[in-house]
């Protein structure tokens, strides 16, 4: 794998890793919380980018794997006091197996039909889990605080979870890069552009798509395991939140569809804008007090519309188009 030595990969990893390590060094808990969320969104966006940005299959309900990973891991930790790392890996592998089983039939659907099916799968899973008693039904599950004892108490567990998300985020970025630069990745891009032509050129689309879908399931499942471990509580509406699923696609679009850096930039910018809007003071229009915190959805929507209409390629894509020479470096 000579791509492992690609300097561009190491620059991205060093930048992301370098920023991530700051709260660990300074012990800044509020920065840690901000970065946890950003890194988690980077994982979600970069992962959905593999099936959607590289392969061209719009996985609207990709959050289903985040939720499944979270539930599998949570269940093991709660009931069998399984070590977190093992529980998270089981969650990741479990979600990947589900991705294969779902992917084989569903990836035969094309375009809007596939997008709709992924929404249906997520909603079916959400409503099913809400009825599934071993997972706590609609109330969900919450930890005994003794679960955290193995990690040096609840406070240390937060740092442990943060270390975890840094590792998962870096792994996701590396995987996203290596896939894009591999022969397998070239096959995915060919499928995105024209599946039938790709098939004639010697690519087995069914197989390639399922593998891509599995990748886009594995990392979000790990992120889900971490997120709900950190929260100590998991419930269906949070685990299988369709809005968050769509937001991940918005981030991909914002940063640059099908690029490696795009989802990272998109996730960061999107999270920062939302955070800014939520904390901004309210304004009064026609005697009605309008909080930005309430308007943040509307403003996010407005920004998204502008991007979709005018900067279709996203920020990184725009750079690549505007300055073709950057194409060689900006993957």
């Amino acid at each position: 794998m000579k791509n492992l030595l690609n300097p561009y990969l190491w620059i991205i990893l060093l930048v992301v890793g370098g920023i991530s390590v700051v709260p660990i060094l300074t012990g800044d808990a509020s920065m840690r919380e901000d970065l946890f969320l950003i890194l988690m969104l980077v994982v979600l966006a970069s992962s959905v980018n593999i099936i959607t940005g590289y392969t061209g299959y719009v996985s609207f309900g990709n959050i289903v794997f985040f939720g499944l990973g979270g539930y599998f891991a949570f269940y093991l930790m709660q009931n069998f006091e399984t070590n977190f790392v093992l529980a998270a890996l089981v969650g990741g592998v479990g979600a990947s197996i589900v991705a294969v089983l779902i992917g084989i039939p569903v990836l035969r659907l094309r375009g809007a039909y596939f997008a709709l099916a992924t929404i249906g799968i997520n909603e079916a899973m959400r409503t099913f889990v809400a009825n599934f008693d071993p997972f706590g039904g609609s109330v969900g599950m919450f930890f005994n605080y003794s679960v955290y004892n193995a990690y040096g108490g609840a406070k240390n567990a937060l740092w442990f979870a943060y270390d975890g998300i840094v590792v998962v985020a870096l792994a996701t970025i590396a995987a996203s890069f290596l896939i894009k630069k591999s022969k397998f990745g070239l096959g995915l891009l060919a499928i995105r552009e024209d599946q039938d032509a790709a098939k004639v050129l010697g690519i087995d689309p069914a197989r390639a798509k399922v593998i891509a879908y599995t990748f886009s399931a594995f990392f979000p499942a790990l992120a889900g395991a971490l997120f709900f471990f950190k929260n100590g509580i998991i419930e269906p509406d949070v685990a299988f939140d369709l809005l968050r699923s769509i937001e991940a696609l918005v981030m991909v679009m914002l940063g640059g569809y099908g690029t490696v850096v795009g989802p990272i930039v998109g996730a960061t910018v999107y999270e920062r804008i939302t955070a800014l809007l939520i904390t901004a003071p309210s304004i009064t229009v026609l005697g009605v007090s309008l909080g930005f915190s309430q308007l943040h959805l509307a403003i996010a929507g407005f920004l998204l519309l502008l991007i979709v209409l005018f900067v279709t390629a996203g920020f990184v894509g725009w750079l690549r188009q505007r300055f073709p020479r950057t194409r060689r470096y900006l993957e």
Binding site: K183, L189, A190, R192, D194, A198, G202
Partner: peptide, 20 residues
Amino acid sequence: VRPLGELTTKENAMVGACFG
């Protein structure tokens, strides 16, 4: 014609070579 439109000319040819 069915070019893989968002890939470069060379990448198109590479797809042929890779999977041929």
